[in-house]
Design a protein around this nucleic acid. Structure first.
Lengths: 170, 170
DNA sequence: TTGGAATGTCAACAACACTGACATATACTG
DNA sequence: CAGTATATGTCAGTGTTGTTGACATTCCAA
């Protein structure tokens, strides 16, 4: 790696980072890192009757309280049948509340209950702890590059969803 | 948290990248990017009787021909029973060859057949194309940061496996 | 040589995704 | 108002991929 390159440097030596070998290393890095990324919440959830799908639902409901089922569907990229199975258990277990829409009564708006918030917090804390350690080790410039590449890797539609969430957040 | 900073780069403005909001954005970026990361091979595989697990097996056998089942197990992080199901179909479909070990007859060494190599290539090409586009858009410095953060996010054991592969590669 | 460890296989089950079909309530439109 | 579209929920069936448990084979060391 190393490489100063960049500005006047995109010729000759450069583009080395686009070799098949470099790309393959990136692919493997994504694979191994994603395993770490999900490991901690998975461990916590394995003791309960929940799985990764429940975590994802809790995360995005927490992030966008009042979101509709349809919106959540699009963000998660699963079918309504699949999401419904997850939501049903979360609602009946009292972690998520579903309120009929005021403007459009067909819609259901989703909120976390106190219990839901608490579980989400537990999972989130575990995942953030790993993220924080990685960020700290890598430093701010690496983090910036990390986010840039991830964003470039998304499907355009998901990039829009991501950007929307990001802007609503801060 | 906080902690002994770093060196030149961490003063004043800094540590902003460690706020919960920043971490959450990183988490979401990982989620959405991973979807993109797997989307292209998944699309190709959905027409066949194979899935993502088959792709992973093909990838790592291609990367380390002659690897044993046990070694593959550790890299993939699944149980031997789970891997075995995948390998069985790949072998019976003539994409992977399993040879009994010479030194230790308990071991099976795995190799891709010509057909296996061809499918692996097809999947790999699709995945690399997206990776290449993302890398190109982001630039070499961002790529360097990307890899640094991913590496820091891995479990130590996986980081070792990753490093070993990386060094065997180039 | 015998017992334990390593390796791999088979069977059964669970989680979570998918498709397809259909029901219900509500909203919109001509 | 009638008819169509939308949002949600549900049932049934299927596929992939993970899990445990049980077991056979092979190797190695006491």
């Amino acid at each position: 790696m190393s490489d100063g390159l960049r500005t006047g440097a995109m010729r000759g030596d450069s583009l080395l980072f686009l070799t098949d070998e470099q790309l393959r290393q990136g692919i493997e890095a994504m694979f191994f890192a994603y395993r770490g990324f999900t490991a901690d919440p998975d461990r916590i959830l394995s003791d309960m009757a929940y799985g990764r799908a429940h975590h994802r639902a809790l995360h995005f409901i927490s992030r966008a309280p009042g979101t509709t089922v349809n919106n959540l569907l699009n963000i998660l990229g699963v079918t309504k049948q699949s999401l419904n199975r997850v939501l049903r258990t979360l609602i009946s277990d009292g972690l998520v509340e579903s309120r009929v829409g005021r403007a459009d009564k067909r819609e259901r708006h989703l909120f976390l209950t106190d219990d839901g918030r608490q579980l989400e917090q537990t999972l989130s804390d575990a995942q953030r702890a790993r993220m924080r350690a990685a960020y700290r080790d890598a430093g701010p410039e690496a983090v910036s590059g990390f986010r840039t590449v991830l964003e470039a890797m998304m499907d355009p539609e998901m990039r829009r969803a991501y950007t929307r969430l990001k802007e609503s957040g801060q």
